[in-house]
Write a protein that binds this DNA or RNA. Sequence first.
DNA 1: CCAAAGATGCGCT
DNA 2: GCGCATCTTTGGG
Length: 231
Amino acid sequence: MPSPLPDAFFDRDAQCVARALLGKVIRHRQGSLWLAARIIETEAYYLADKGSHASLGYTEKRKALFLDGGHIYMYYARGGDSLNFSAHGPGNAVLIKAGFPWVDALSDANALAQMQLNNPDAQGKPRAPERLCAGQTLLCRALGLKVPRWDAQRFDLDHLYVDDCDIAVPRVIQAARLGIPSGRDEHLPYRFADAEYARHCTRNPLRRGQVEGRDYHILTEGMPLWPGSTA
DNA sequence: CCAAAGATGCGCT
DNA sequence: GCGCATCTTTGGG
């Protein structure tokens, strides 16, 4: 039984949404197949922070960032599509950074095989499932999500939604976001990852050399965000 | 119309 | 860890 996230889920602070999305499942229908990936890595962006697209100002392309929580914002950069969901407050949103293929009764092995066809490697060969959604544009490629179809749209139970599959995420990693140029609020700790899937993220936040308390923090269930602001 | 950037990804060291 | 390919969108001429 699918259990789509209600609009109210997204109408909260972006960091809360980013954290809560870990372990949720994105489902996108392609023909008769429901392609699916569980979310393992997210980043929050705010109107006021200089790393965000919204901080560049309102334009037609960026309008979805300013719509009510639960709108889809997609953009194209560096050779691929990226997926975001708007959160509470104009200009605030969550970027979906990485996922992991999800297989169940609705999204079966045939759906996974289609995802591998959608997102082959540079030689045209199928990727290992653990690499298939290990990046914001890889995820969109595997799931078949495109800017022209989904930007500024809402979820649609016949085509695309986020499913609460009741997956436990006992430990969440909170760290600085990736790829933010210096001077653009690059230190803000708005990146969130499922600790059990850390090695399958865009970059492993627990890789050798990273130090807890300096490079990242661990949040267990019920623990407030670090450094404590739930805004 | 064209140049350049961009919330990246890959391959090699 | 670093260079380079990536290719659509964007904005200036």
